[in-house]
Design a protein around this nucleic acid. Structure first.
Lengths: 236, 236
DNA sequence: TGTACATCAGTGAACGCGCGTTCACTGATGTAC
DNA sequence: TGTACATCAGTGAACGCGCGTTCACTGATGTAC
């Protein structure tokens, strides 16, 4: 749907390259213009006529969707490889730090791609279902860390008398199953709270909420990461 | 600058009303169209010619700025009056809950106004300095609660061995002074972490990150509010 | 192996649209004497 | 109190612009026999 298919072999390869080039240009334009992606501007930069893009994408939203899926995948991969790069798999705090730091680094590097997936919804654009699997990719890494930490007994027992209404409890249990953590509800809930905090921190930094207020940004982010590790109950 | 001034009295009143009407229409359009505010669309809905708007605002950005300032003020007022409505001033947890709940309610009610101030930056728009004071208004309420909690001894002592680098420490102390809390650095830091989490939660909910995942949204938000109160060390 | 035909990428013109902003203007409303 | 003048709100035409999308077309590249 997003990308038209071709049978041939050489042609197919050229076509695939062209698609990548279009997306690369579009990405770069989004970096300077924000989400207001213009097909004409993209085609202009590619030195072709605007209608030629319709050989590759059905319409503007289709190109946007492709960019969004790519962004999710890139972010997910950044998180995954940051996690994988921690040699000592039992260093759960180190993994948490590595993953969250990678999320932030990726986002600071490509603020507009970040905005595309975690910013305000683009008016008139509705994300199709193809975006769902890539979108869950980053959070799977969180799930893995939580599960390993739980299994290794590296999580302090969560306060058992924090009330969790039944409906919410069921949904959180569902998330625990889905992202493969399989951890208990209080742990999963705390993990999600922490995850939300981390993205809140990235949001604030990227969207200017701490401009002229906090300049020691690396330190501030590190502080928040550590605070959330503590909140989850992650022990050294 | 944002709004042209007039000396007269009756005329001035009519003018002020007109300005309010323009902003009201613009707000309503933002609610359906997103940040892509169109002067022509606003003027059309008002039944006047587009150039007439230039009697009231220098240009499009000027109108946007006015909307942004109004939004900050409205959100700030919502937070302030939610806090003030808690009769028992020593019920710090209750005040925290009231304020955060008010922030969320306001945002859910006006998602596009929320996006205007806490969402992705509008491409090509740079917020002028007039927006700074209104923007700090909501966070002042947090400062007041923290200060009162600290003074009443209702905060558990923060872990003293969490490292806070000097530069960051100084900036956080500066924030504590600025928002009138005057609390110690670890407390202020935790307060900001919690504040960031709350806005992260509102962001996630508003921008669709928990769609098809968590339906028990009131409960989930309440859980997060409670979790952050615990994190700050707010005791009943 | 060579030829006829189908597929495909890219062209160029056109459609219909909406936008922000400027400018000279007309009347109505206020102000000063 | 009445008149002359200045201020102001709103008009209507125009500027120059960019946009997404459609459509009939031209060549070049691949495929089937």
């Amino acid at each position: 749907m997003a990308v038209k298919k071709t049978a041939g072999s050489i042609r197919a390869r050229v076509r695939a390259e062209m698609i990548e080039e279009i997306k690369a240009v579009a990405r770069r334009q989004i970096a300077t213009e924000g989400a207001a992606l213009s097909l004409r501007a993209v085609s202009r930069e590619l030195g072709m006529v605007s209608s030629a893009l319709y050989r590759y994408f059905d319409n503007r939203d289709d190109l946007l969707t492709a960019l969004i899926i790519d962004a999710y995948n890139a972010l997910g991969e950044a998180a995954e490889s940051a996690d994988a790069a921690v040699a000592d798999r039992s260093d759960l705090l180190g993994r948490w730090r590595a993953v969250t730091t990678a999320l932030r680094a990726w986002s600071l590097d490509r603020p507009h791609e970040y905005a595309l997936i975690y910013g305000s919804p683009v008016p008139g654009y509705a994300a199709p279902e193809d975006t769902v699997p890539p979108a869950t990719r980053p959070v799977l890494v969180l799930g893995a860390i939580l599960a390993d930490a739980k299994a290794a007994g590296r999580l302090v027992e969560a306060d058992p008398d924090t009330p969790v209404p039944d409906a919410l409890r069921a949904e959180i249990a569902g998330i625990a199953d889905l992202i493969g953590a399989g951890v208990d509800v209080p742990t999963m809930a705390r993990g999600l709270v922490a995850w939300t905090q981390i993205f809140g921190a990235i949001n604030f930094e990227l969207f200017g909420r701490i401009d002229n207020t906090i300049d020691a940004r690396d330190d501030w982010f590190a502080y928040q990461v550590r605070a959330m590790a503590e909140f989850i109950g992650l022990r050294d």
